[in-house]
Design a protein around this nucleic acid. Structure first.
Lengths: 241, 241
DNA sequence: CGTCATTTTGAGGTATTTCAACGAAGGTGG
DNA sequence: CCACCTTCGTTGAAATACCTCAAAATGACG
């Protein structure tokens, strides 16, 4: 049997759905082999950050790519109007640090205490250019993120706030590493963050949440936990684009 | 000086902004080397399709990836509500055929008469797994598409239809291969397609266009051409998210 | 040149945004 | 350990902007 990974940092697998048909068996299968993780570990630095810490700012020099190990991060953009648009929430096994011409496109901030790996971008590109199998995993991962982004764009085009909120809940619930139970959804982010993600006002998010509760689809417990009361009707509302 | 490309199908370069800093000189530099195009040409089939032709349907087996050579394609999704959401417009040098578990995520249809290259997906994945430099170009391209998608998601979160329409015009205008002149914007797609892309109703798109015209930012000539009258104010409106 | 899809215009309904004020929670420092 | 303060959440009421429905005009295409 395989020896457990040594003391060197154990880079986590990526979370993604492959674009090729799945000839093999089970579904949520880690993307990286142990060997690939070892390779990545050579240039990775493990970092542990407290909650609400700015990791990098938009337009700053993009020196690193990050991989979430544990915790939740938000990627957001401050708009001229003063609003704050959330481009993505990053959960464990997600990558972040999207760059354009060597500059970060968005800002990134931890939501919870977060452990992550930090890869120096030049070393990483060298590495994947020499290891096609490893590079392929990155390609799969980015492709997955593209699909998610397109889905979200379609999702937030709908008019009704309750429907959008339902989609968000299902979105977080389905994320295999978001730390939610089957019927419990962990919501570490603030209502404002959700509003920024869904393109709604903060008040609209609150009213949509109240409506979902009134219709007995979910029950909120405190601000960071939602219980799904009626999975079928919630999914139906979420899917009724 | 370099010899011109031989008779074998000349696969077009990709359109993308690299994520690494640009150490070299000029900006809109083709992504593929001649050698890489030759490699791709080995498995590519050149296809020429008339306007308004369905290329593939969502959930169909994804056997091919496509690269637009000339013309415009839309990637869209028919929603349960009967609405039609446009995920992306594909211009020359764009890739399309996004798949998930071997199935297409969206449907694709030509808008104009279109020339494209068709790559068998299994052969293509084999190829890029053996040619890291080539694979890297695909990674850059998909990363670019991801950025675009995130930008669009933020764009359509804004409330005002006129602002969204302005963003769309600038978006098309900036696309280096969309066939627009400096102040002329070619709009081969229908108003309904634009509405589906922006998450607006058809009527809202028309009224937003009328408002842009009333404010003398652009002038529409027929249905498929827009003249930019005031680039500065148009850009300002588009950027005033 | 006729047909049909697309575009355009009008009027009313409705959902969300905005503005404002209050209440609750979490973090910090004394 | 408590008080303070800042951030976040909540509720109400009015305004705005888009959506929907309906009908007419325009343009594309065979």
């Amino acid at each position: 049997m395989a020896v457990h990974r040594p003391a060197s940092p154990s880079v986590p697998p990526f979370h993604a759905t492959p674009f090729l048909e799945d000839g093999s068996a089970s579904d949520p299968r880690p993307l990286l082999t142990d060997a690939q993780r070892q390779t990545l570990a050579q240039i990775a630095v493990r970092v542990r950050l407290p909650a609400r810490l700015l990791i990098y700012q938009q337009d700053a020099r993009a020196d690193w790519l990050f991989a979430v190990v544990d915790g939740v991060v938000k990627s957001y953009r401050d708009l001229p109007s003063g609003k704050r648009a959330v481009a993505a929430f990053l959960f464990p096994q997600d990558l972040f640090g999207l760059a354009e011409r060597g500059r970060y496109v968005n800002s990134a901030k931890t939501i919870t205490r977060t452990t992550m790996y930090r890869f120096p971008l030049p070393a990483l590109t060298d590495l994947i250019k020499r290891d096609p199998g490893l590079q392929f995993q990155f390609l799969v991962k980015v492709t997955h993120a593209l699909r998610e982004s397109q889905r979200r764009a379609i999702a937030i085009a709908r008019r009704d706030a309750a429907g959008r909120m339902a989609m968000f809940l299902v979105f977080v619930q389905r994320h295999p590493t978001a730390g939610s139970g089957d019927l419990d959804i962990a919501l570490p982010m603030s209502r404002s963050d959700i509003a920024g993600f869904l393109g709604l006002s903060l008040e609209a998010v609150i009213r949509a949440s109240a409506e979902l509760e009134r219709r007995r689809l979910v029950a909120f417990e405190g601000r960071h936990l939602a219980h799904v009361l009626d999975p079928d009707r919630l999914a139906k509302l979420a899917g009724a684009v």
